[in-house]
Nucleic acid binder design. Structure first.
Length: 480
RNA sequence: GCUCCCAUCGUCUAGCCCGGUCUAGGACAUCGCCUUUUCACGGCGGUAACAGGGGUUCGAAUCCCCUUGGGAGUACCA
């Protein structure tokens, strides 16, 4: 039987990188096994779910290339794929459980519920101790409902029964009896809760393998109860390790950029984000660290997940991005730069020939494409002279003022807006032959006078790309 | 509190299931060297880990138990 997996986000915010990782695993697992990957939108939290977020999530997934076989936007055999369009189905199962006595109407007040929850946490009493779980009150409950009173429905948990699963990554997991109390399956506003509709949809959508984050592991016991009560076949579960921040806590907004669209804006390549995220909790069988999702279609398997939490490290993401950047053809790189770099910036203000020269020069200096514009802004507009140990050393050489004085004069005499490569070569030759400067003092002297820094791209290629004006300003400062 | 989960270099991890080939391998970061008449890229090398304690065994990173530490859940959120 072929695999059917799903990614089931709630459209209550932008796609999170943790969600992107889960979706990526689902997509790749389906592709690698000839199965299907389904996208389902879990929008039963009316207050927080929006259509805008749903669309944003679909867009982000699309940008990442994590395509699904079935979903709200593409349809499929088991449509609909949006929970807000499946409410009748949930209602019918609620009715069924009510009928069988496996669920009950609950009329406890908010204050009562609050007290129960408090006692549960502080004293270890059962999570729900209301009287409505007892059959003797059910007739009264039905009357109140018939009279039009709105109320929630709870699943009646058997406190003597324990459950267990054979988790795809955790192995055997035991959930002891009494672990959870009677939980709400239908809110008083008529909308079902996650632990209930998730089960119904996974069954209806014929999902046979659930890949999700570890934070859902404890929920599994509630879902197991629903599976049992409804007579559904239980799928295989694989609970992926969570992603944590540098403080070892679950990754969240306070750790910085956590949504995919931010990485898109920051100029990361989607294949790099996928690649990096994939390695947070999974390892390549040949220990490769750079690959595309297409490479994974051949080798991905669900036995290589890591159980322990993985710390998110943007430095390694940047390195991964730099590796993918270098895999790009010249045309792809140009297209990427054009798309990402600001349209009113320095890069876009030049012609394509210049842009290509600029990219080939800067490629091995950068990890993310946006750094190109940053470097250009620096070379064009920043005429400040770097002040550190390296610059002090360069300034201490007696040859540096000689170079500066010479260059200042030469640049002043250039009539064009730019310095040509030929002119640059002549100046170097002059300093070498006439001023007898060579090696480090020569190159570093030129670099420092012209760029104000002790490091940077190849000078011969860089200088012709820069405006004469900013070169002159810098060299004037050095020659003072 | 209770329940569940986790534990190899600073970080991501391989190895663990099926004990010996592990004086624990790779990658990021870091340091050094080489290359580059400069800077970088690249190449080479170094520092750096089996949380602790008990077992089992001829032999344990690998199996068992305990301790410690960390995380998640404990909602009419998902």
């Amino acid at each position: 039987m072929s695999i059917r997996v799903r990614f089931a986000p709630s459209p209550t915010g932008y796609l999170h990188i943790g969600g992107a990782r889960t979706a990526f695993y689902c997509h790749v697992l389906a592709k690698a096994t000839g199965g299907k990957y389904i996208l389902r939108i879990e929008d039963t939290d009316l207050e927080r779910s929006t259509k805008e977020y749903e669309q944003a999530m679909i867009d982000d997934l699309k940008w990442l290339g994590i395509t699904h076989d079935e979903g709200p936007d593409v349809g499929g055999e088991y449509a609909p794929y949006r929970q807000s369009e499946r409410l009748d189905l949930y209602q019918s199962f609620v009715d069924q459980l009510l009928e069988k006595g496996q669920a009950f109407y609950d009329f406890c007040s908010e204050a009562e519920l609050e007290q129960m929850s408090k006692d549960h946490i502080e004293k270890g009493t059962p999570a729900y101790t209301g009287k409505w779980r007892e059959q003797e009150h059910w007739d009264e409950a039905k009357k109140r409902v018939a009279a039009g009173e709105k109320t929630s429905v709870r699943f009646k948990v058997d406190p003597t029964k324990s459950y267990s699963i054979e988790d795809g990554v955790r192995g055997h997991v035991e959930f002891p009896a009494g672990m959870v109390g009677d939980f709400v399956i239908m809110r008083s506003n008529g909308l079902p809760t996650y632990n209930f509709c998730n089960v119904i949809d996974d069954n209806a959508h014929k999902i046979n393998h659930v890949l999700r984050a570890e934070e859902h592991l404890n929920n599994t016991v509630r879902q197991l109860m629903v599976y049992e009560a409804l007579g559904f076949e239980v799928p295989k579960f694989s609970h992926l390790s969570i992603m944590i921040g540098s403080d070892r806590q679950k990754l969240s907004k306070r750790h910085g950029a956590t949504s995919v669209n931010l990485y898109r804006e920051m100029g990361f390549l989607p294949e790099a984000l996928n690649n990096y995220l994939c390695l947070l909790g999974w390892s390549h069988p040949e220990e490769k660290s750079i690959f595309t999702k297409e490479d994974l279609y051949q080798v991905f398997d669900d036995t290589r997940f890591n159980k322990s939490p993985a710390m998110y490290d943007i430095e390694k993401l940047k390195w991964t991005n730099s590796q993918h950047l270098r895999e790009l053809s010249e045309d792809e790189l140009l297209a990427h730069a054009k798309e990402v770099l600001p349209s009113d910036g320095l890069f876009h203000s030049h012609n394509e020939e210049w842009q290509r020269a600029c990219l080939s020069l800067l490629l091995d200096k950068i990890q993310v494409i946006t750094e190109v514009e940053e470097l250009l802004v620096h070379y064009f507009n920043n005429t400040e002279i770097q002040d550190n140990d390296a610059s002090k050393e360069i300034m201490s050489w007696e040859t540096t003022p000689q170079i500066a004085t010479y260059l200042k004069e030469q640049i002043s005499n250039v009539s064009d807006e730019n310095v040509s490569a030929e002119q640059f070569n002549e100046w170097m030759d002059y300093c070498k032959k006439e001023l007898k400067i060579k090696g480090k003092p020569l190159f570093m002297g030129f670099r420092f006078c012209l760029t104000g820094q002790d490091h940077g791209p190849d000078l011969k290629q860089l200088i012709p790309l820069l405006p004469k004006k900013s070169l002159l300003e810098r060299v004037s400062k050095v020659s003072q």
